[in-house]
């Protein structure tokens, strides 16, 4: 039989995790759905569960120097309404699930779930976020793209917990977020796109592009981004189709009950193109 523990402190949580046989249960909005059974029966968890959702020690949003830190149990709704949070994250969270799910689910849980269709995961990539992972043995920091290895697969040892996520404040002229779901709200993404850029006169000094739900992990290619940096708007216009084809090479979506791969690919590229056009015509 599966064991359940509700730690009263973060330290206690780490101790329980050190036994190596517990999985973290945070808001539960992924896990409770995945393992639900017949009503009135216990949820069919496969592992022992550590209920951390009420650990207030991990419920925080703070800012230090250029960085914003978000604790593991902080819910989407708290993040959405917090003054420190960059607009791009808010754009995403406003259309994330529904108010009830936002009150339960957490940003760290969205990352722990490692779905290629995780909306806030996309933004974490865009923000080039890093995770603070801890166990009684050590504390380490991992960039998001190294942490998420594939759909549902993360670089986390059995005794480890994600303590927080943090990222640098952005300084962009404009940010973009589009979620394409089956309906206007309360939907799982079929495709999603986020981007931002900064111009100095007509020169692109910074640009970031993230595309989700079209490959096993979020697409964010620093090499392409680096190649765009330094372009004038004219260069960008000339290189547009090249950039599109570079991204097209990464886009490798699937057919499922929600959409099909042709649509996903086409829409992802449409959104990317619209973004590039927007920069070009902005001048």
């Amino acid at each position: 039989m599966v064991e359940n523990k509700i730690p009263t402190s973060y330290n206690e949580a780490l101790k329980i995790l050190a036994t190596g046989s517990y999985q973290v249960l945070n808001g539960g909005t992924d896990l409770m759905v995945r393992y639900r059974g017949w009503s009135e029966t216990r949820v069919k968890f496969k592992k022992n569960m550590l209920h951390i959702h009420n650990l207030d020690e991990l419920n925080y949003i703070t800012s230090k120097d250029e960085y914003i830190h978000i604790g593991a149990t902080t819910t989407h709704e708290t993040i959405l309404h917090h003054p420190l949070i960059p607009e791009i994250m808010k754009k995403c969270l406003r259309v994330f699930a529904s108010p009830a799910i936002r009150n339960m689910g957490t940003l760290v849980g969205n990352i722990g779930n490692a779905s290629p269709a995780g909306d806030a995961v996309l933004i974490a990539y865009l923000l080039e976020a890093r995770l603070v992972v801890e166990s009684l043995r050590h504390q380490r920091e991992v960039p998001i793209e190294d942490f998420i290895k594939g759909p549902g697969s993360i670089a986390l040892a059995p005794d480890e917990i994600i303590k927080e996520i943090y990222f640098k404040k952005l300084n962009f002229n404009a940010t973009y977020f589009t979620k394409v779901g089956g309906r206007q709200s309360d939907a799982i993404s079929k495709v999603m796109f986020a981007a931002g850029y900064r111009l100095d006169a007509d020169k692109i000094v910074d640009i970031r592009i993230a595309i989700g739900a079209v490959s096993p992990t979020i697409i964010k290619d620093k090499t392409i981004e680096k190649s765009i940096k330094g372009y004038t708007l004219k260069n960008l216009s000339n290189q547009k189709s090249m950039i599109l084809s570079q991204y097209a090479a990464h886009i490798n979506p699937i057919d499922d009950q929600r959409s099909n791969k042709h649509y996903r690919k086409k829409v992802a590229l449409n959104l990317l193109e619209a973004f590039l056009n927007d920069i070009i015509t902005r001048s």
Binding site: G182, R183, Q184, S185, I188, Q257, R258
Partner: peptide, 27 residues
Amino acid sequence: YLEVMNHREGKIMQKNMTDYIIPTAAD
């Protein structure tokens, strides 16, 4: 325009309210 349901080899593909999309208040 919204409600998609189909089967694959006789198995219904959209078998919950997440995948079978009915309009919300926002739609």
